Every structure is written in C-alpha cells, then in structure tokens.
Simulated scan of single mutants.
Amino acid sequence: MEGVIPIVLMVLAAVFGLPWLFRLKRSYLEKALQKHNDETRAGLVLEKAGMPPLKYWLRNRKGDCWGLVRHPGGERQWVRLGGVLRSGDSPLTFFDA
C-alpha cells in the first residue's frame, strides 16, 4: 500500500501538470510572435501550438516551442521558438507546413 501512493502522486502530477506546461509554452510563443509582428508588420496569427510534424522532430531541441502560424495571404508555416538566449537573431525559425 505504501508503494502505491508515490505512483498515484506521479500520475496526478502528470495529469494536472502537462496542460499547464502546454499553456505556458503557448504563451511564450504568442509573446514572441507578437514581438515579431511588431517589428516586421507581418500579421502572423498563431493557429495552434504543440508538436510539429514528424519530419521536423529531428530539428527539435529541448525546450523548443512549436506552433502553426497563418500569414495574411493564407499561407501556413510551422514556427519554432528556440534559442531565446541568443542575442541579435530572431528566436523564431520558420519551416514549410
């Protein structure tokens, strides 16, 4: 019985912690996109945030945030928010959808 309590606590932490983590990563991506839109006047809209397609998993790094953005013309692209500590470059990298 004593060994069950840590397992139950880990399951509860995963169930309640993962949605919070996904919302946090989405907010980071929305802030970076807003900054990018202010600088470039691109007008990008975040459609969804989450895991990219399988072909981009090899480019994934620990801590990256991925999202699908829509341009004003209707074009869709995947965007990766990573390398936030780099200076000078935009932390956003765009990939074809």
Score class of each variant (00 low, 15 high):
residue 37 N to R: 01
residue 57 W to L: 06
residue 53 P to W: 09
residue 36 H to D: 14
residue 29 L to A: 11
residue 55 K to G: 07
residue 22 F to K: 15
residue 42 A to W: 03
residue 32 A to P: 07
residue 62 K to G: 05
residue 23 R to T: 13
residue 63 G to Q: 01
residue 48 K to V: 00
residue 61 R to D: 00
residue 33 L to Q: 09
residue 49 A to L: 01
residue 58 L to V: 13
residue 32 A to T: 08
residue 31 K to V: 09
residue 60 N to E: 04
residue 64 D to E: 00
residue 50 G to W: 04
residue 66 W to R: 00
residue 48 K to D: 05
residue 43 G to E: 04
residue 66 W to D: 06
residue 19 P to W: 05
residue 41 R to Y: 03
residue 40 T to G: 12
residue 25 K to L: 06
residue 55 K to C: 10
residue 23 R to D: 12
residue 44 L to I: 05
residue 39 E to N: 11
residue 51 M to I: 02
residue 61 R to P: 06
residue 39 E to G: 10
residue 56 Y to R: 02
residue 48 K to W: 01
residue 41 R to I: 02
residue 42 A to M: 06
residue 52 P to A: 10
residue 28 Y to L: 11
residue 51 M to G: 08
residue 40 T to V: 09
residue 57 W to N: 00
residue 34 Q to D: 15
residue 34 Q to A: 15
residue 27 S to I: 00
residue 23 R to Y: 03
residue 20 W to C: 12
residue 24 L to T: 13
residue 42 A to S: 15
residue 32 A to F: 00
residue 40 T to F: 11
residue 37 N to W: 01
residue 70 R to I: 01
residue 38 D to R: 05
residue 63 G to K: 02
residue 21 L to Q: 15
residue 61 R to Y: 03
residue 35 K to E: 15
residue 45 V to E: 05
residue 60 N to D: 08
residue 36 H to I: 02
residue 55 K to S: 12
residue 34 Q to C: 14
residue 63 G to T: 07
residue 63 G to D: 04
residue 47 E to I: 07
residue 57 W to V: 04
residue 49 A to C: 13
residue 49 A to M: 02
residue 31 K to Q: 14
residue 30 E to P: 00
residue 55 K to E: 03
residue 55 K to F: 07
residue 30 E to T: 01
residue 19 P to M: 09
residue 70 R to K: 11
residue 37 N to H: 05
residue 38 D to F: 09
residue 20 W to T: 14
residue 46 L to Y: 11
residue 45 V to S: 03
residue 31 K to R: 14
residue 48 K to E: 02
residue 28 Y to I: 08
residue 48 K to A: 06
residue 68 L to V: 08
residue 54 L to T: 11
residue 22 F to Y: 10
residue 54 L to A: 13
residue 34 Q to S: 15
residue 30 E to Y: 02
residue 58 L to S: 11
residue 40 T to E: 14
residue 26 R to K: 14
residue 47 E to Y: 01
residue 41 R to S: 10
residue 53 P to M: 06
residue 46 L to P: 09
residue 55 K to W: 09
residue 62 K to T: 07
residue 27 S to N: 10
residue 58 L to E: 08
residue 65 C to H: 10
residue 44 L to Y: 09
residue 46 L to V: 07
residue 67 G to A: 02
residue 49 A to K: 01
residue 47 E to K: 07
residue 24 L to W: 11
residue 66 W to E: 03
residue 58 L to I: 11
residue 30 E to C: 02
residue 26 R to Q: 13
residue 65 C to F: 00
residue 57 W to A: 01
residue 40 T to M: 11
residue 58 L to R: 15
residue 21 L to E: 12
residue 52 P to L: 06
residue 48 K to G: 03
residue 54 L to I: 07
residue 30 E to H: 05
residue 26 R to D: 05
residue 53 P to G: 06
residue 52 P to N: 01
residue 21 L to I: 07
residue 28 Y to D: 10
residue 54 L to Q: 09
residue 69 V to Y: 06
residue 45 V to Y: 01
residue 24 L to V: 11
residue 33 L to F: 05
residue 66 W to Q: 01
residue 21 L to A: 15
residue 70 R to T: 02
residue 47 E to A: 04
residue 50 G to M: 02
residue 46 L to D: 12
residue 58 L to H: 09
residue 35 K to N: 12
residue 20 W to Q: 14
residue 40 T to Q: 11
residue 60 N to Q: 01
residue 34 Q to H: 14
residue 43 G to A: 06
residue 28 Y to K: 14
residue 50 G to L: 05
residue 55 K to I: 08
residue 26 R to W: 10
